[in-house]
Amino acid sequence: MRLALFKAGDLLIATLLAASCFGSFYFLWYHSGRASHVLLYQNGQLVQRWPLRLDSRFTLHGPLGATLVEIRQGRARIAADPSPRQYCVQQGWLNGPGSTALCLPNRTAITLEGDSGHDSLAY
């Protein structure tokens, strides 16, 4: 039984694809950059863009009531929200660019934005 049925070009392609696979892990997961701003949304509309280096607290207003957003030490979280399942509160602190906490049905959300101006993921 011969094992080496494949050819040299196969090894080349396998190497290239494996390299891009590791590259995708590195660039998309490990080295995804730093978040610089937090975007606050209310009813789908952007209401505030705030630099993460400034600690602050904001209140967003939705149909259920007030969503409390906390920004501290370069991170942001939903500190309190009236939505019944509390998913956005349980998400805790957001760090990476592109991460989002969405409070439904209160229709409020926060998203972190990378410092390069565009999205963290170049495509």
Binding site: L5, F6, K7, A8, G9, D10, I13, A14, L17
Partner: peptide, 12 residues
């Protein structure tokens, strides 16, 4: 070219 690339390349 089939000389250097087999089905394995096609599959990947």
């Amino acid at each position: 070219p089939a000389r250097y690339f087999s089905v394995l390349s096609h599959s990947m």
